[in-house]
């Protein structure tokens, strides 16, 4: 999926994550800050990248401010931000599946 414009999903409240996706400059650029960076930084990063890959996002600047979100929450926030960024959020989205 192509990131057409900047979009955001999620909040900064405890157990959530705020995900921003913006058009990239060739490739995925991930900026992560997390309240549990030392414990789960690597896993969060992997989850975000995996979700982007499933959505076939190849060119984006992604910023994640994590406040201890579970994996399912992270995935949902990344998906939502990506859908918003390509104007798909108004359509009938099969959440959790790859959308083309």
């Amino acid at each position: 999926m192509e990131i057409l414009r900047s979009a955001m999903a999620g909040t900064l409240e405890s157990s959530d994550a705020q995900v921003t996706v913006e058009p990239g400059e060739g490739g995925i650029e991930l900026e992560l800050s997390s309240s549990v960076m030392n414990q789960y930084g690597r896993q969060i990063k992997a989850t975000v990248l995996e979700t982007l890959e499933r959505l076939e996002v190849k060119d984006a600047r992604v910023t994640v401010v994590d406040k201890g979100a579970l994996d399912c929450t992270l995935k949902a926030r990344v998906e939502c931000a990506v859908f918003r960024s390509c104007g798909k959020s108004a359509e009938n989205i099969p959440w959790g599946g790859a959308v083309r």
């Binding site: 955001m8 909040t11 900064l12 409240e13 705020q18």
Partner: peptide
């Protein structure tokens, strides 16, 4: 504060 900042950043977005 987190709630307020979330709301403001979403609005800015």
């Amino acid at each position: 504060l987190n709630e307020v900042v979330s709301h403001l950043t979403a609005r800015e977005a």
